[in-house]
Amino acid sequence: MVKPIPNELVESILDHLHSDKGTLLNCALVGRAWVHSSQQGIFREIVLDLPLPHISITDYTTQIENFLKTTEWLISSFDTSPRLASYVRSLLLVKFRKFPEAAVSYQEAVYTATANIVRRLSNVGVDKVLLLVQWNDLSHSLKTALTDMLRAPQASVTQLSLVQFVISTFAEVAALLSHMPHLKMLRIGLFCANWDVPNSSLESAMTGTVGCPPRSIQLEKLQFDSEQELTSFASWFQQDCCPFSVQNLQELELFHYVGGSNNSVFHLGYTPNIHSLRLVIWQGGMNSDTPVPWIQSLFTPLLDLDSRDNTISLRRLIIDLNQPHTQWNNEWALLDALLAKSEFVQLETVQFNLLASYYVSWESLKEKLPLLDGSGKLKVSGRAKRVIIRSG
């Protein structure tokens, strides 16, 4: 007699298949013991992905029709078995952009179906939301559904990614974020026509809407996809009435284009308890400058603190160098000396990732960083890769 597989083992196996929907659908047919865990994996992440507008209109309409069939199935599933909606932990809206003229007749149906799904997920414990959308082009009903989902008193969203997120004003983004008390991770990649920073207390008085109390949203991880938004967010974070606190931020990712300003408007003085810092640096064209002055400017406010214990909490520094120069000048020795200071005693790893469309000698870089190399903290990897610049 063959003994049945323990339920705990079944759940563990199926938990590792959450990205393989086809296999999970087959597993759900094995038997009752497999149904619950299979369904949890099937519905854990909902990805609503529209086609790119530049493909042929035939392919575009075919994909849109498939999209509508999928959303119809999801809505029917949630209405028939409401517990299925409670399994959803992540919601991703991808490539919600302006419809091509030849397919504009589908737009209302797509936005209505998407809004209906969002409404069904508003109060079921969705933890992670990613929006790659042109906000201004969405229907009123879809924008309202998304806003209600993020702002709902019962909302549990802790991770929000706004990627290639096109919106008219920074003030609209600030208003959206100001009502998310449980937010812990925020990724920002904005395209705004107006970057003016609102006065949060004035906005509340004028609109009658009150966001979270000042400094009540305790971020743990913050990522910026370009430099454009840094100035506005740095200014907003400094307002006394801003609901966000970055004092206890644990992880930070910044983007920098070599050749721009070396004075960082978002320095580590704002985030003195940072443990992990990732710097995504583009060093392209014929520019012979290095990012070293910019990196130095990030740490200067921490080094200037008037404190008896001036130890910097940073433990891991990752530097992604996109299209670095084949010749490493002596400015890198300044970075080596900086990170060898006693204030960086907690620093465990400095990881350089050299990403280029041609061969780059990582040994030559190590020669410019003898103190880091000798301490055993330096890790360098290099590989040829097609690199796409993040526009900002």
Rank of each mutant, 00 (worst) to 15 (best):
L138M: 10
A152Q: 10
D137G: 01
R151W: 15
V157N: 00
A145T: 00
L162K: 05
T147L: 11
Q164S: 14
K143W: 02
V163H: 13
V166C: 05
K128C: 15
L132T: 12
T169G: 14
K143D: 06
V129Y: 04
P153F: 01
W135L: 07
A145Y: 00
A152R: 07
T158M: 10
V163K: 14
F170S: 08
S139L: 02
N136I: 09
A152H: 14
E172C: 09
L130A: 01
A171D: 13
A171Q: 14
D148A: 09
K143A: 05
V133T: 06
D137N: 06
F170H: 10
L132Y: 04
P153Y: 02
W135M: 13
K128R: 11
V133N: 01
S156R: 14
T169Y: 04
I167K: 05
V129E: 00
V173W: 00
V157M: 02
L146V: 15
L132G: 11
F165A: 01
T144R: 10
S156E: 12
A152P: 02
V166T: 13
S156M: 14
L162C: 13
M149L: 15
P153V: 10
Q134C: 14
A152Y: 07
V157Q: 00
T147I: 14
T158I: 09
D148E: 15
L132D: 15
R151Y: 11
H140K: 11
V173T: 14
L160T: 08
V157H: 00
F165Q: 08
L146T: 06
L150W: 02
Q164W: 07
L138G: 08
T144C: 07
L146S: 02
Q159R: 03
T169E: 15
A171E: 15
F165D: 07
V163L: 14
